[in-house]
């Protein structure tokens, strides 16, 4: 054999050579494995490979790891090829092949007189034979078995819906806050507007106090009247308007003088408070007594008043 000629050229040379030879053997074995053949030649090929390997390893004095690993690999692949070959041989005893089997099944099914080319019918024909092969247990179902599962699913759905709603609510929130601020601004604007009306009316009345009820009462709306009273009370409280009685013991008001207002702010004297009670009947009565036909204060004019300010 070829490898014998090089024998004796020193240990390292020999190791190199044996490793190289083993690599070749491994390569051949892998080719065989990939070939996937199970014939007689295959077995002979493998046995010659094994013989070569045996021969090589006999001459090696110092086994190193590389040769050991290569040897193990050659044997592992060789045995897996042999195993496959053995399995094939075993089945070949009465020459069973998948092709023949499938052909026989088809021709068997076509023999049956009632069977046509309909695949479904053919398969159904096999069902009773197939059932005999299995010891299958029949399915066992509770009549109430699914109820619990249903309930769980429903509660899950509800929870999801609630979450969505909350998200929508939080998105709207910033808008709401803005609106509230606007309303608060509105109160201030209204109070300003009333102050302007009072001042104007005072001047028109030749700097004499004006009738409180004539200012406040809105002949068309009790609600607007109450609102006016409420707004004027702010002015009274903060000292912008002086409150007094006329000769008939009716309340009259006049804008306070500027220096008086500033003095009040500085020394923080006791504040004036106005408590007034009014109901629908009194409102009607006052309306008739003062013969009020038109409201002096009209909240809808506020925007117009604002425009004139700017």
């Amino acid at each position: 054999m070829a490898e014998m000629e090089n024998y004796g050229n020193g240990e390292s040379e020999q190791v190199k050579y044996v490793t190289e030879e083993y690599r070749n053997l491994l390569h051949e074995a892998m080719l065989l494995n990939e070939d996937d053949k199970t014939g007689r030649e295959n077995i002979q090929h493998i046995s010659s490979l094994m013989c070569k390997a045996d021969h090589l390893i006999k001459d090696v004095q110092n086994l190193n790891n590389t040769i050991g690993l290569l040897d193990a690999k050659v044997i592992s692949i060789g045995s897996s090829v042999l195993k496959r070959t053995a399995e094939a041989v075993n089945a070949n005893l009465f020459s069973f092949t998948a092709e023949e089997y499938s052909d026989n099944i088809i021709s068997y099914l076509k023999q049956e007189p009632s069977v046509t080319n309909n695949i479904k019918l053919i398969c159904q024909k096999l069902a009773p034979i197939a059932a005999k092969c299995f010891c299958r247990t029949p399915s066992y179902m509770y009549m109430l078995g699914t109820f619990q599962v249903g309930e769980v699913a429903v509660t899950q759905k509800k929870a999801r819906k609630q979450r969505e709603k909350q998200e929508e609510g939080s998105r709207k929130q910033p808008e709401n806050v803005e609106r509230i601020e606007k309303q608060e601004d509105g109160v201030e604007e209204t109070v300003h507007y009333i102050m302007n009306v009072v001042t104007a009316a005072y001047r028109q009345n030749k700097n004499k106090p004006i009738s409180y009820f004539e200012l406040v009462i809105n002949p068309d709306s009790f609600g607007a009247t109450v609102e006016n009273i409420f707004h004027v009370s702010f002015l009274v409280k903060d000292g912008y308007i002086d409150f007094s009685w006329d000769e008939n013991r009716f309340p009259v008001i006049a804008p306070a003088r500027r220096d008086v207002i500033e003095n009040r702010k500085k020394y923080d004297q006791t504040r004036q408070q106005m408590v007034l009670e009014i109901d629908m009947n009194q409102w009607e009565e006052l309306k008739n007594t003062f013969a009020i036909r038109r409201a002096m204060l009209n909240p809808r004019n506020i925007t117009a008043a604002q425009d004139s300010h700017h």
Partner: peptide, 14 residues
């Protein structure tokens, strides 16, 4: 189940 048993019989027998 019938269909699956037919299929299983064929492949298990193979």
């Amino acid at each position: 189940v019938e269909a699956q048993q037919v299929l299983l019989m064929l492949l298990l027998s193979l």
